[in-house]
């Protein structure tokens, strides 16, 4: 009864609003293509236009600063003309390490994929263990906190000594760099599973495996993915540095090689590629996280 009363009072001002309101109530004329596209275009524009403007301004300033004959770095226009060969042929292969930037990036990505995959499996596994057990937490957490502050490259000599080969050493550096945030975040996620969920599992008498995959992993997923995102970012940071030292095909060594032959434009182009690839890697992990943890937001 009170509901109807409410409705009539709400309806009154609409009716008083005359003609316009009446039109809305009847079947709408089908929106034209322009009308449906306009909002989408607008949202794309708000996302793209501001960074495009800033980027344009930065290039302009750079161009002006470096255009004088005595400048130590090339201006953007010079970079593009110098490296046009590289931009146009990302996948040429002239043997040895004389390959297109696409090949170098792929080689680096492959190392990252391997090292990161090990880190995910090992990190989530160990994180679950540490999060589950009070004793494992007390024993291992301080050690992790110390080890995670060791810079990635500091591990390289040790792993070169152990593996006696550049390739596995680089993969190991990726692994050891990205594994800590994965372990620590997974452990925190497991420890933060609300008692309510544990109690539900206990009342239902879920066994260890059921508890693991029905409660533990989904409940900790947001934390685990935070660790995975930090991990992939660190992996990419580490690979470029590691490759500079181990040599061979890879974007890191490409940069080092370009520096040795004083090809500044090549370095700048490689840096742009490194940045974009790192950004894409982060977005991919974020997208996977979003699609998997959609329902996990606290209700």
């Amino acid at each position: 009864m009170s509901k109807t009363a409410l409705k009539t009072t709400e309806a009154a001002p609409v009716a008083a609003g005359a003609g316009r309101a009446a039109v809305v109530a009847f079947p709408l004329p089908r929106p034209t293509l322009a009308e449906t596209l306009a909002p989408k275009l607008r949202s794309v524009a708000t996302a793209v236009v501001p960074p495009a403007i800033v980027l344009g301004l930065m290039l302009l300033v750079w161009e002006m600063l470096c255009s004088s004959p005595g400048a130590s770095l090339p201006p953007p226009s010079q970079v593009v003309t110098d490296t046009w060969e590289l931009i146009a042929n990302p996948f040429y292969d002239a043997g040895g390490i004389d390959k297109g930037l696409g090949w170098h990036l792929l080689a680096s990505l492959q190392r990252v994929a391997l090292g990161y995959a090990f880190a995910v499996v090992f990190g989530v596994g160990l994180g679950v263990l540490v999060g589950q057990s009070q004793w494992a937490m007390r024993g291992l957490d301080p050690i992790f906190q110390v080890l995670r502050t060791v810079p990635p490259l500091a591990w390289l000599p040790l792993s070169l000594a152990a593996f006696r080969d550049g390739q596995p050493s680089a993969i190991f550096v990726i692994f050891i760099t990205s594994v800590w945030p994965i372990i620590i975040n997974t452990a925190v996620g497991i420890r933060n599973i609300p008692d309510d969920y544990r109690n539900v599992a206990r009342v239902l008498r879920l066994n260890g495996f059921e508890y693991f995959h029905r409660i533990m992993i989904p409940a900790a997923a947001p934390y685990i993915f935070t660790g995975l995102r930090i991990g992939i970012g660190l992996s990419w940071l580490a690979i470029v540095a590691a490759e500079m030292l181990i040599g061979g095909v890879g974007i890191g060594f490409f940069i080092w090689d370009a520096w040795n032959s004083s090809m500044m434009s090549d370095i700048i182009l490689a840096l742009v590629y490194v940045g974009i690839t790192g950004f894409l890697l982060d977005r991919i992990v974020a997208l996977i996280a979003n699609s998997i943890t959609r329902g996990t937001a606290k209700s």
Binding site: P194, D196, Y197, N199, V200, R202, V203, L204, R205, R214, I215, P218, A219, A221, T293, G295, T296, A297, K298, S299
Partner: peptide
């Protein structure tokens, strides 16, 4: 001496699992 489905609980704050429908 242990929880079990013969004593089902409706918790104070519902505690549905948010990742399940």
């Amino acid at each position: 001496d242990q929880p079990g489905p013969d004593r089902a609980v409706v918790f104070q704050n519902h505690s549905l699992l948010p990742w399940l429908t």
